[in-house]
């Protein structure tokens, strides 16, 4: 299993063979505040790199969730639909959003590693 990578839209992605698991980062969940609603891409649908693949809503506002890579949705996490608060309590593990069969592994290369992302997140919140 490869290392976790991060996007500028504050998603994380973990690759296992050609299956990617995607969610939003701890930093994103903290910025959003209490999440009360989530919408996920449908199983079987195709998503394109940097395209909208879902929505998260706090009490204050709705925000789009993007996919950092292209692929076909093979699974979405119903447990966060039933209990969106999980996204605040465990965003980078249990509260993953969806799994993709990825199209092009090279797309992952452009993403940030953990260290780079933390630096990016810190700068972008200032």
């Amino acid at each position: 299993m490869s290392e976790v990578k991060f996007s500028k839209q504050h998603e994380w992605i973990k690759l296992d063979g050609d299956i990617a698991t995607i969610g939003i980062t701890q930093h994103a969940s903290e910025m959003l505040g209490d999440i009360v609603f989530v919408e996920l891409p449908e199983k079987g649908s195709s998503v394109a790199k940097d395209g909208v693949a879902g929505v998260v809503e706090s009490t204050k506002a709705a925000s789009d969730v993007y996919t950092p890579v292209s692929g076909e949705v093979i699974e979405n996490n119903q447990s966060i639909v039933d209990d969106p608060a999980k996204i605040n309590s465990d965003p980078e593990n249990q509260a993953w959003f969806f799994k993709l069969k990825i199209k092009d592994k090279n797309e992952i290369e452009t993403l940030m590693n953990k260290e780079e992302y933390h630096k990016f997140a810190k700068e972008s919140s200032n």
Binding site: G33, D34, V36, T59, K60, N88
Partner: peptide
């Protein structure tokens, strides 16, 4: 203040 450390729901 929009919220404190506890968050809006709590």
């Amino acid at each position: 203040p929009i919220q404190y450390t506890d968050g809006i729901i709590s």
